[in-house]
């Protein structure tokens, strides 16, 4: 027995996986998730690749959707309800909000469905289940980037120069992703157990659109409801995104920092609890999905 032989066999000997029943709250095991990062990448890539197959307009839909939404919101909130847009043109004010909103609403519907649409994988192969909702949320990032280019174009057209706040953009996008993931994790796990979620999601998404500052500014909300309003994490996401891109702040409301602080704490709570809830329910997924 030489030294070399011992060294060769050692890593193998340590590579023992024990499968046993687990109870209660499970550890997140993010290390394992990291080991499977390529799977997350491929699942995301598949979702993106498949999304616009066999469509005539292809990725143009990523632009058409928010533009149509913008026109509708501009007519309803801008022209009919005559609501202000914090000193920037109404269309760009609403379009900017639709970027994080689109990321969120797509993440919500995609991750809600994700465990069911990947049922054949979940019941056949082992991999960290978190990769599935994670990939479905990340799949929306490409649409976000495409719309972002359109937003830049609009900013050039209306000659809006971004402020130094632009530098916080990565943080704000992370904020948006965490919000989307937090809600997505809860709903993807719940949808495995309760198919009702599939019916709740579209309604919820529509409802949230109207209680988030997408078509209007937070200033429109009565002062006494502002704290409650900020509990919707998308309030903080949208207002901070608009601030970073267009330099607007809601004029007649809580300070933006307070809004963001309230929203962010809700988002983080949702995200962390979502992670643990998902991990807890995960072990039954293959049996009930």
């Amino acid at each position: 027995m030489t030294q070399a032989e011992v060294q060769i066999s050692k890593p193998q000997a340590e590579d023992v996986i024990v499968v046993r029943p687990t109870k209660g709250w499970a550890a997140l095991n993010l290390r394992e998730l990291w080991q499977y990062r390529e799977l997350i990448y491929f699942l995301t890539w598949r979702d993106i690749k498949v999304r616009y197959k066999q469509t005539i307009l292809g990725a143009a839909w990523a632009i058409i959707n928010p533009i149509v939404n913008m026109v509708v919101l501009q007519i309803v909130f801008g022209q009919l309800a005559n609501m202000g847009s914090e000193g920037v043109p109404g269309p760009i004010f609403r379009f900017a909000a639709l970027l994080p909103w689109g990321l969120f609403s797509k993440a919500l519907s995609a991750s809600g469905r994700s465990m069911l649409s990947n049922r054949n994988l979940i019941t056949k192969v082992y991999f960290p289940r978190l990769s599935v909702p994670l990939a479905s949320v990340l799949g929306g990032v490409l649409d976000f980037v495409i719309s972002f280019v359109v937003l830049i174009g609009m900013m050039l057209y209306w000659q809006i120069t971004p402020t130094w706040g632009l530098l916080t953009l990565p943080l704000i996008i992370l904020f948006a992703l965490i919000t989307a993931l937090g809600v997505g994790l809860w709903f993807s796990a719940l949808n495995v157990l309760y198919r009702d979620v599939g019916y709740i999601l579209p309604v919820l998404s529509q409802l949230l659109l109207f209680i988030s500052p997408v078509g209007y500014s937070t200033s429109e909300v009565a002062a006494k409801w502002q704290v409650l309003y900020a509990l919707n994490p998308m309030t903080g996401v949208i207002e901070s995104f608009r601030w970073a891109m267009l330099g607007t702040t809601p004029s007649d409301s809580l300070p933006l920092a307070t809004i963001v602080a309230i929203s962010a704490s809700v988002a983080v709570t949702l995200f962390v609890s979502g992670l643990f809830y998902f991990r807890r329910m995960e072990r039954t997924f293959a049996d009930v999905v």
């Binding site: 590579d15 192969v125 082992y126």
Partner: peptide
């Protein structure tokens, strides 16, 4: 293959499955 957990007992897997 670790798709589902056992209710009782355990399995030791020495290597990638």
């Amino acid at each position: 293959s670790r798709v589902t957990e056992p209710t009782t007992g355990f399995v030791e897997l020495h290597g990638r499955v």
